[in-house]
Design a protein around this nucleic acid. Structure first.
Lengths: 155, 155
DNA sequence: ATGAATTAAATTGTGAGCAATTTAATTGCG
DNA sequence: CGCAATTAAATTGCTCACAATTTAATTCAT
């Protein structure tokens, strides 16, 4: 018998990631509710606070999301009065994402959020940075694999 | 100025978790497509392979999901002929989840999946186990925090 | 210059997730 | 017993996430 022993769900990397990501969302939810944002909307706002005027494509590359996810989300942010969606006159295919005054002002209200989440994570900032880096590297490896699988399937 | 420096998205634990969980899903997708399962459906099947006859509630506690998510998912598994949903005669509120022959047989086809994912993760099994444990512990701390926040809000 | 590729967003359709509510069965207290 | 509280699933309504397709603008090769 050299068959791999059946591993419990709890011992699987995929499952710990899956449940931890949901748990993280649950921690953010009440904090972001006060700002009128969902967690993905918060990510978009952070990306725009860091660099206003991005296209949907650029934003999608930053967040690993496509227009199918972003278009309706951005429309909701526009309806909430936080974002303006304007076609680039030089290339009408592109949509440039600008912030409204309210959208910019929200950055101040959002500033205390990360510290409260770090508190929930319950580990020192060094520890936190290391774990972040390890998971980011894992994501990079998974992305590479997904790409090669795609290429293999195409051939 | 003692204000906390604004941290890039890439350096945030929440974001690395969020994107890694999605990347994991993308790795699983083509492997599970062959079995006719989505990733959450795969988790449910694994839980049932491990312990058939569970109630929806017990399954939800294992997977950290509620009936709002599980009821439609289980109906899809039933429609696919993998699962049977039967009321417990001793307590008609409970739904007991049984596997069909096809559902049990699927376990064999699913066996090679985790090894392929481990390959995608691209780290040794010791490393993989450690990372899994660290993320699972993180999830436990986040859950605790979410609970205390809930209690605080209720008082 | 013009028609074929390419590109950017939007759209369509399916399947999660989850809060809030509803329905139905059971328990427990007077 | 009888009815209020509790419990388990189901339902409703909203928001992601993503594959596949469509629409419209731009680029490129002839």
């Amino acid at each position: 018998m050299v068959t791999t022993k059946e591993i419990a769900l709890e011992e699987m990397l995929c499952f710990s990631l899956y449940t931890a990501a949901h748990a993280m969302n649950r921690v953010y939810k009440p904090l972001l509710e006060k700002l009128g944002l969902t967690y993905p909307q918060y990510l978009v706002m952070r990306a725009l606070w860091a660099s206003e005027g991005q296209t949907v494509k650029a934003l999608g590359q930053t967040l690993f999301l496509d227009s199918g996810t972003l278009t309706p989300l951005l429309k909701r942010l526009e309806a909430a009065g936080l974002v303006r969606r304007m076609r680039n006159p030089a290339d009408e295919r592109e949509l440039r994402l600008e912030l409204t005054e309210a959208g910019r002002a929200l950055q101040d209200s959002a500033r205390p959020v990360p510290a409260r989440v770090a508190q929930a994570a319950g580990c020192g900032s060094t520890e936190l940075a290391r774990l972040t880096r390890e998971i980011r590297d894992l994501r990079a490896r998974l992305d590479t694999f997904a790409d090669t699988a795609e290429t293999a399937a195409a051939s």
